[in-house]
């Protein structure tokens, strides 16, 4: 009896179960903010909703990577019938899929909110069009910095410090792009798009770097 295997899917299932209870809380918060947004059309609620929907799930997955028995779990994974690059791909895909689900949720809720609150459309297009893209980009960029560092022996022992450094680093890069974009008189939408492209490229490059690190890692 041979099953058809999907190792990456198996690891994604693990990843999901590891953060499921925290994800449920985050989802409840996001749903509450979505309802509040649909009722009030408040721009502050809008900001928190975007942050909650797109930012928190990838953040929870990143935190779970620093869980106390994560090293043992990685060692166990390395003894299973999967390649080391599968392990890396599963890490990256879990963060990417969490952020993408948030982005889709955001799109749906914002679309409905425009029906009830026309001025929201004005607010979003004029001042915060790029916010979902910004938060999405931040999540990718932060993970792009965190994953390769966390994969080294150096990062393994300083997890919390690097978490903060990578968060600051990602924020710094996004602000720098924003500042350079403003100086070049780009619109907010173009700047957001630029930030998203740079974050995506960093995410892909980071995946290849982490794969190379994993190929020579002792678990």
């Amino acid at each position: 009896m041979m099953n058809r295997t999907h190792p990456i899917r198996g690891l994604l299932i693990y990843s999901f179960y590891s953060v499921r209870s925290n994800l449920q809380i985050a989802l409840l918060l996001t749903c509450a903010l979505a309802v509040a947004l649909l009722i009030t059309g408040n721009t502050w609620v809008y900001n928190f909703f975007v942050l909650s929907a797109i930012g928190i799930p990838p953040y929870l997955i990143m935190i779970s990577m620093g869980a106390k028995n994560q090293l043992q779990w990685e060692k166990y994974q390395a003894s299973m019938p999967l390649r080391r690059k599968n392990m890396v791909a599963a890490f990256y895909l879990s963060v990417l899929s969490a952020a993408l689900v948030g982005l889709v949720l955001c799109g749906v809720v914002l679309g409905v909110s425009f029906i009830f609150h026309e001025y929201m459309l004005h607010h979003v297009t004029e001042t915060a069009f790029g916010q979902p893209a910004y938060v999405f980009g931040m999540a990718l960029l932060m993970f792009a910095l965190l994953a390769p560092i966390g994969s080294t022996k150096f990062g393994e022992t300083r997890g919390e410090m690097f978490f903060t450094v990578c968060l600051g680093g990602a924020l710094g890069i996004m602000l720098l792009i924003s500042w350079l974009g403003s100086r070049a008189e780009m619109s907010a939408a173009v700047i957001s798009l630029l930030q998203l492209i740079i974050a995506t490229v960093a995410f892909v490059v980071s995946y290849h770097i982490t794969s190379k690190i994993y190929a020579d890692t002792d678990f």
């Binding site: 099953n3 295997t5 198996g10």
Partner: peptide
């Protein structure tokens, strides 16, 4: 030592392992 994430149940482990081991 325990190598599995602590939030998982044995049933969760099984549903993931069947994707990884061809003879699970």
């Amino acid at each position: 030592t325990n190598c599995f994430p602590e939030h998982l149940t044995p049933a969760n482990i099984s549903s993931a392992m069947r994707q990884i081991y061809s003879k699970w």
